[in-house]
Write a protein that binds this DNA or RNA. Structure first.
Lengths: 243, 243
DNA sequence: CCCAACAGGTTGTTTTACCAAGCTAGAGCG
DNA sequence: CGCTCTAGCTTGGTAAAACAACCTGTTGGG
């Protein structure tokens, strides 16, 4: 009875082949050993080899041509897409994990865009939790979380203290709602005088504004996160495959 | 000898189950029939059923819990991410498929950001192909494609005529290079006087600038696409799952 | 010489079979 | 009554075998 569970054989094969590709043993463009060669070398059956190669193909490490063989593409780049999703980190990680101060905690009339994304009536109230995030010793971004009033009852969101768990985890444990997907909008506008002052930015440079509407699996709006970034100091970057 | 090829059985099963989920026959949250039930109903073997269910799980239609069963999540929302990839369409579809005019076709000194993304020396020349795209009867966006000089030899890129095939297809057939992935940067800045005039936009509203650096599988830069959108009339929107 | 047919390699799909791991409900015992 | 444990369900993983589809180089015959 071993307490440490061993990964399945096909997953071990995936890792072994990934290591060989990264080490240059199987350079990009070269042909991978055939299924029969891998069966003999690793002492596993064909379905196991095929399962491992399927995973590698779906992850973008290799491509296959029926009748010819499988060819190395290299380490896939799909992993870094999260970088252009600024709202996501603020939803899942606790507020204590980033350097910043809570600037506003109140129930306010939601701006038109927020009301639309939250699926509430125009000019009606929603709960705002706004923070000024600092990086490298200076103010870097303004992050605002808007939550429908009925979702804030019985939660710690109305406290000015920093949340020790992520917003998603907090709402899930207290209110039983589950974050499923985000509808993200990116736009740009000029900062207000107050925003420019808080962020310490010149008044003639624009703001990048990222809106993330969080929904559950049925499409019900649960929260909206607004991230404001001075365009002269921050950009959004991500990598994705073509096809 | 049938000219029309039939899709594999597991793919047919995938489509059948997708239809049942979309029609509400298998509502979100409900449990899918067990493997044995599907085997009996569709008259296929277990690996075939498992292969279909694996595809559905990887695409986000269902989730599975060992020992309990598989549960419906609903139609996944990952399909619409392409909307926030403005550069991609301009790379794959022919210029004749969008309404617009070619405004510049020349070899110019590349701006600093373009030179960096193309991996060429600062202040060196690259080939520029710039178009003003119109939508709904007015100017909508400026699309600029920068290509290294050596990749333009023997191509039709230097012609002021509209390309009848996508830039990717053109470079692949003429130069043997293959587009693999895109490194995308999103930022905002104020328009130049010329840009504001061409786009018919107020001078005090910012521009959304999307830079897409196209690379092959080895990371070699092949082209850079710059898309300029007036922020008061266009935004970027995409949908992605959490987790 | 050229081209067609073939042989032997490759990956893709499907089947049958068996064991392991996890969950649930009910039987049975204290 | 309450608890434990087991029987029977579920999904997850592995093995062995066969056929189909596709590519390539060779071996022929024309």
């Amino acid at each position: 009875m071993s307490l440490e569970s061993v990964p399945p054989k096909y997953a071990q094969l995936v890792q072994a082949l990934q290591r060989r590709i990264e080490s240059g043993d199987y350079p990009p463009g070269s042909m991978l050993p055939s299924e029969n060669q891998l069966i003999n070398e690793f002492g596993v059956s064909r379905p196991t080899v095929v399962a491992a190669l399927r995973v590698l193909r779906e992850q973008g490490w290799i491509e296959s041509q029926q009748g010819k063989g499988r060819f190395v593409r290299g380490r896939p780049v799909t992993a870094s897409v999260e970088q252009s999703r600024p709202g996501q980190a603020h939803l899942t990680s606790p507020e204590t994990s980033s350097d910043g101060e809570v600037t506003e905690v109140a129930a306010l009339v939601a701006p038109e865009r927020i009301a639309t994304l939250l699926d509430i009536a125009p000019k009606s109230k929603a709960f705002l939790r706004r923070r000024l995030i600092s990086r490298d010793g200076g103010p870097a971004e303004i992050v605002s979380a808007w939550v429908p009033l009925e979702l804030t009852e019985g939660t710690d969101l109305t406290s000015a203290d920093l949340l020790t768990e992520g917003l998603g985890e907090h709402l899930r444990s207290r209110k039983g709602v589950r974050f499923d997907h985000i509808v993200q909008q990116i736009t740009a506008r000029m900062p207000t005088a107050d925003e420019a002052k808080r962020l310490g930015m010149p008044k003639n440079t624009p703001l990048l504004a990222v809106y993330g509407a969080v929904r559950d699996a049925s499409g019900q709006a649960l929260a909206v996160v607004e991230v404001l970034l001075p365009a002269d100091r921050h950009e959004l970057e991500d990598v994705y495959p073509i096809g």
